[in-house]
Design a protein around this nucleic acid. Structure first.
Lengths: 225, 225
DNA sequence: ACCCTTGCGTTCATTCTGTTCACCGGCCTG
DNA sequence: CAGGCCGGTGAACAGAATGAACGCAAGGGT
């Protein structure tokens, strides 16, 4: 059982994370802290395996808390949960040894994927015996970081999805593209392009809007957000 | 150009690592330290991107040096090079944010693989723009940790792998080949060809892309990078 | 109102994928 | 030398992803 400490100042969100964590086999929420001070105190008295850490705390930045932990010789693994889309923050987090970096908002599937990746890493290192070989270490590192992608609904293919996204990104005119245009540019049919565009629309990565003008039914154009 | 500091007490080995590093495109050996004190002093005055760190130093354990760096707010990335096959050491290293853990003795191929993995991680994070999305962070983490092991996974044979690579190289059309085509050209079944092509794809030596056209499910074509 | 035009949204045959499982040959063991 | 095991292969199969075809929806023109 992996013991988890949740550090999050917003009570509602902390509650949500706790509920998420409890739903995953092998994980157990040990405690919830709302400030960095509180977290430090808890960690001094209670053995914890993994910290779910919000970076935005009232009394101290989450990265500083991590640094303080490391300085104190506490090597507990940390999973950062934040809405900070800042490259410098990501790099700092990596250098401080956080196991994963999860951007808010996230779906339960994404959340679970990260926790399960951590569980894999853990079991591989613990189960490896006393004399790990290079390839065992590699496997453990890969389990830690190599993420199983959010599984797509049936009928969709990751390669094709990447192609569609590539076409949308590469479009010089940011006004949007119709399904037929996307299909032509990626070398597939309108039907296929549409399937993926609709998926992207449903998952909020793209917006649909009608394009009026000529005679006939208006076209639907898709634009990245 | 990635600036590298080598920290290794044994002069001969330090020299070897420096030579290895210099042989890899994009890496530049900035300095060599033989003690932790020396390394600290160098880092205070010189900007360094990556530290190749031997754990066994005369004046201080390498992990302690790393912890001291973090405590001092120095987030330089660290690649640990050691012969310590100790699980606790590996876990500590991870929690302190080392990018890779390389067991001595190693071949040049293994060494280069780790450095190139780091270079991939770096370029992905730097090139991502200011607003990374979750999947971009995931890709960067995967590049950092997803390693291609030297030894082939079970079920694969070096001779067959060479054959597949030969077929891909000999292809006059550089547009890519399907698994069935590769299989036919090497005199093996599609299933076998696919096994090896997928391995090559996972280790980044080959890219997969769908090939659309007529009715029916699209083919996957594999192309060397 | 009415028709005309044009693209949408869906269905379904088609083709290739991904996986499983039995087989074959070599190697170690008793 | 028999028997079991293991690593590598391919035949067979279930089903996944695509596009041609088609009826209908949604605009403009008169």
């Amino acid at each position: 059982m992996i013991r988890v400490l949740i550090v999050e100042d917003e009570p509602l969100i902390a509650e949500a994370h706790a509920a998420y964590t409890a739903r995953i086999d092998g994980f157990q929420v040990l405690s919830v802290s709302h400030t960095a001070q509180q977290a430090m105190a808890t960690l001094r008295t209670t053995p914890v395996d993994l910290i779910l850490l919000d970076l935005n705390l009232p009394d101290m930045n989450g990265l500083e808390l991590t640094r303080a932990l490391r300085a104190a010789g506490i090597g507990t693994d940390v999973l950062v949960v934040t809405s900070a889309r800042d490259l410098a923050v990501v790099r700092s987090a990596v250098s401080l040894g956080v196991t994963h970096y999860l951007l808010k908002p996230f779906t339960f599937a994404t959340f679970r994927e990260k926790l399960l990746g951590y569980a894999r890493y853990r079991s591989q290192l613990l189960g490896a015996g006393q004399v790990p070989a290079q390839h065992e270490i590699d496997r453990a590192f890969a389990a830690l970081r190599g993420t199983a992608p959010d599984s797509l609904p049936k009928g969709l293919d990751q390669n094709t999805l990447d192609l569609v996204l590539g076409v949308l990104r590469a479009d010089p005119v940011p006004s949007g593209l119709s399904a037929a245009e996307v299909g032509a540019r990626m070398g597939a049919s309108r039907v296929t392009a549409r399937r993926y565009l609709e998926h992207l629309a449903e998952t909020g990565q793209v917006v649909r809007s009608p394009r009026y003008g000529g005679p006939g039914r208006p076209e639907v154009e898709y634009r990245r957000v």
